Amino acid sequence: MIEMVIEQRRRSLGGGLEVGRVLPFAKRRMVGPFVFFDHMGPMDLAAGVDRSVDVRPHPHIGLSTVTYLFTGEMMHRDSVGSEIAVRPREVNWMTAGRGITHSERFEKARAMGDHLHGIQAWVALPEADEECDPAFTHLDGDALPTWTERGASGQLIAGSAFGLTAGAPVFSPMFYIALTLAPGATAELPTGHRERALYIAQGAITLDGRDWQTGQMLVLDANAAAIRSAGGALVMVLGGEPVGERFLYWNFVSSRQERIAEAAADWRAGRMKLPDLDNGEFIPLPDDPGLPSRPLP
C-alpha cells in the first residue's frame, strides 16, 4: 500500500523564511504531475519583520503554482497584472506557461505580526501546454467543493475526486485535497489515479497498521485506503496521471533542457517582464557555470 516514505528536508529561503522541502526527492521526482512540494512554516512572523523575508520578483516557465495556506497571509503580485492577498483556505493558481514573474510579500505580518503555515506546490504542464499564455486564477474558499464525513472535512483544491471537480484550470487529470481530521476521525482516500501520495502537515495518522507523523509524505499504490487520526491532523492528498519526465532548474520546469537554458538566459538578460506593481527589485539567477553568464542590467 505504501510504496515510499519521503521525509521533509528543512531549507532556508533567506531572511528567516524556512520551508520543509518534500518534492522533488532523489528517489521520487514527481507524483502524478506534482513536481515540487514545499511546506511553509509553521512559523511566527513578528510585527515589523524585515523585508528580507519577502520573496522578491522571480520567474517561472512550464508549470502551474498552487498556494494554499492554513494560517497567515501573503500578498501576490505578478506580470499579468494580478495583485491579491493569499489567505487561508483559498486557492491561488498561477499558470506560468511560456513565462510569468511574481512576488510574495508579507505585508500583513510587517504591520501586525502573523503566523504563517501553508503549502506551495508546482504542477508540471503537459508538453502541449508548456508554452501556453500565462494566467492567474483566485478562488475563494466558498467556491471550493467541500464535504464532511465521519469527523473528516475535505476541501477539493484542484482537479477531480469523489465525483467532484474544482474550479482551478488544470491541464491534466489530477486531484489535490486538504483534509482536516478531528480526533478519532477516519477518511477514505480517492482512487482512480495512477499515482497518489499524502502529506501530513500537522498531527499524526494511522495507515497500513503504522503511525505516521508531521513532515512525512507517503507515496501510495493504487489500492483503496483509509486513514485515521487519534489526535487530529491536517493532511494534503495529491496525485494524478504522469505527464512524463521533466527537467527542473531553479524556478523553471520543462520537458526540454534547452528550453530551461533559454529561460535562464532571458532572465539574466532582463527579457522577462516584472510585475507592474512590484518592479523595483528581483531575485538574480543563481550562479551556474553551465548556464549563460551575462549579468542582468
Score class of each variant (00 low, 15 high):
G15R: 02
G16S: 07
V19T: 06
V22G: 03
F25Y: 01
H39Y: 00
L45I: 10
G48D: 08
V53F: 08
V53T: 02
R56Y: 13
R56H: 10
I61G: 01
L63N: 08
S64Q: 04
T65H: 04
T65L: 11
L69G: 00
F70E: 09
T71N: 03
V86Y: 12
V91C: 14
M94V: 15
G97V: 15
R98E: 11
H102M: 15
R105N: 09
M112K: 12
D114P: 06
H117E: 11
G118C: 10
P126F: 10
C132I: 05
P134S: 12
F136E: 05
D140I: 10
A143Q: 13
A143G: 03
A152G: 10
Q155C: 00
A158C: 11
G167L: 13
V170F: 02
I177F: 04
P183M: 14
G184S: 10
T186N: 09
T191H: 07
G192D: 07
A197Q: 06
I200W: 03
Q202V: 00
Q202S: 08
D211E: 14
W212C: 00
N223C: 08
A226Q: 11
S229V: 11
G232I: 07
M236W: 04
G239R: 01
G240R: 06
E241N: 09
N251G: 03
V253N: 02
R259I: 00
A261L: 04
D266R: 11
P275E: 09
L277H: 10
I283A: 13
L285G: 07
